[in-house]
Design a protein around this nucleic acid. Structure first.
Length: 426
RNA sequence: GGAGAGGUGGCUGAGUGGUCGAAAGCACUGGUCUUGAAAACCAGCGACGGGUUAAACCGUCCCAGGGUUCGAAUCCCUGCCUCUCCGCCA
């Protein structure tokens, strides 16, 4: 959520900034509602003050043993006026809040302008696209040849966009998770955290998935209206919801492995083959809760932490700065890491690292006590994938495939796989 | 699933219809003392919204949502959550 005061005082600026990302803010409507709100709020508060004063004098009169009947008569009508004013006010506030919850974050000044992913800007590359002296297969063929990847069985068990992994492939998938968690906790200063995979509406509203993106979520058919998490970002960031964090505990850095569930309504027809786009996938997520002045530095650092995973795995990649039209709803600045997929002859997203500044914090009421002011102030939140495990496996299947159909095991994974150096063809 | 207890400021915790936004303690901030620190003592100290140059001041908030009342942290209803005991269970 944006700062309501910013919208009130710098409406033109906000409108212009949101236009950069293709969002049209209904300024006229907001001005209108704000004016009404102010008017009714003043009226309501005047009535409340009046009621409070009268009630107080009734109490005092009663204490002295005076007759309170005339005072009661006086206050009689006040209640009705007050009630209707209060109702009107809360209706307006609800409407204003609904609008505010649907307004995306303002792009950071360093976020390049642009309309779509075609306008994203390449920041740097690492490694050279892998060369092969034989015909490269895509990860589906490599995986099936190894007898480790099976989409037909998954379709039987559930439906499309699920995968069954077996044997060495399943083991490598698990090894990747251990490797990533160990790396981030041992070398990058993150605390491992385990969280629920089912969350309530408040949590999803806090990180920005609700109310606008319910279609992308799997909702449970229960009384509590629970949802499966689309990313660990939701439960992990909500750890600090409604909290005032001690300065000594800042920053907080969490590394978390969870499955992610995405309905992705609207993505039909994209990446239908293979493991790129699934309803269920594993991810190791990095989340940082930081002081406002540190958040952009934290984004650079966090992006670097995700990059090191790719470097250690020997997977070529590039870093893209998403343009204003392509960053997510809650984000002010986002870097995507794109890994080289030889079969597609292109780079594909494998991590997305974002700074949300205080956008999520405001929804979450996540604050820290600034020692300089002594006051609670909103924190900044930063997160990113470190990495998407399924897609990392895809990248390994494609980049480490051998002419004979076997799969080399990246060196850093070998200790996680009992010293195995190659996964043999089935 | 059954029975009971409870949800109050950053934390612990008192408060059962009328100057209660709320005792006390801890934490924190400032001061005295000290070479410095600690201790001790004194003072200050909730959040949010409105208002103000700043204050004063006004409003809302004692889990959430309804209700009773001139007036609710306090009474009633519903929901959520936590704890204890019993049962069941990986």
């Amino acid at each position: 959520m944006l700062d309501p005061r910013l919208i009130r005082s710098e409406l033109d600026y906000v409108v212009a900034q949101l236009a950069r990302r293709g969002f049209k803010l209904d300024a006229v409507r907001i001005i209108e509602l704000e004016a009404q709100r102010k008017d009714i709020q003043v009226r309501t508060q005047t009535l409340q003050a009046d009621r409070n004063a009268r009630s107080k004098s009734i109490g005092q009169a009663k204490a002295k043993g005076e007759d309170i009947a005339p005072l009661l008569a006086e206050v009689g009508k006040l209640g009705d006026h007050l009630k209707s004013a209060e109702q009107e006010l809360s209706q307006l506030q609800t409407e204003l809040e609904a609008i505010m919850l649907g307004v995306p974050n303002i792009p950071h000044e360093s976020t390049p302008d642009g309309k779509s992913e075609n306008d994203n800007v390449e920041i740097r590359r690492w490694g050279e696209p892998t060369c092969f002296d034989f015909d490269v297969k895509d990860h589906v063929d490599v995986g099936e040849q190894l007898g480790g990847l099976d989409f037909d069985t998954a379709a039987k068990i559930t439906g499309s966009r699920f995968a069954v992994m077996t044997g060495g492939v399943a083991r490598m998938h698990r090894a990747l998770i251990q490797f990533m968690l160990d790396l981030h906790t041992r070398e990058h200063g993150y605390t491992e955290i385990y969280v629920p995979y089912i969350v309530n509406k408040e949590s999803l509203r806090g990180t920005g998935q609700l109310p606008k993106f319910e279609k992308d979520l799997f909702k449970l058919n229960d009384e509590q209206e629970y949802y499966l998490i689309p990313t660990a970002e939701v439960p992990v960031t909500n750890v600090v919801r409604d909290e005032i964090i001690d300065t000594a505990d800042m920053p907080r850095r969490f590394a978390c492995h969870t499955p992610c569930f995405r309905s992705e309504a609207g993505s039909y027809g994209r990446d239908t083959r293979g493991m790129i786009r699934q309803h269920q996938f594993e991810k190791v997520e990095l989340v940082q809760i930081v002081k406002p002045e540190d958040s952009h530095q934290a984004l650079e650092a966090l992006t670097g932490h995700a990059e090191i995973v790719l470097q250690k795995l020997g997977l070529p990649y590039r870093v893209m700065a998403l343009c204003s039209g392509d960053i997510g709803f809650s984000s002010t600045k986002t870097y995507d890491l794109e890994v080289w997929l030889p079969a597609q002859n292109t780079y594909r997203e494998i991590s997305s690292c974002s700074n949300f500044e205080d956008f999520q914090a405001r929804r979450l009421q996540a604050r820290w006590r600034n020692p300089e002011t002594g006051k609670p102030e909103l924190v900044h939140t930063v997160n990113g994938s470190g990495l998407a495990v399924g897609r990392t496996l895809v990248a390994i299947l494609e980049n480490y495939q051998q002419a004979d159909g076997c799969l080399k095991v990246p060196e850093v994974l070998q200790t996680y796989m009992g010293g195995l150096t190659t996964i043999a063809k089935a």
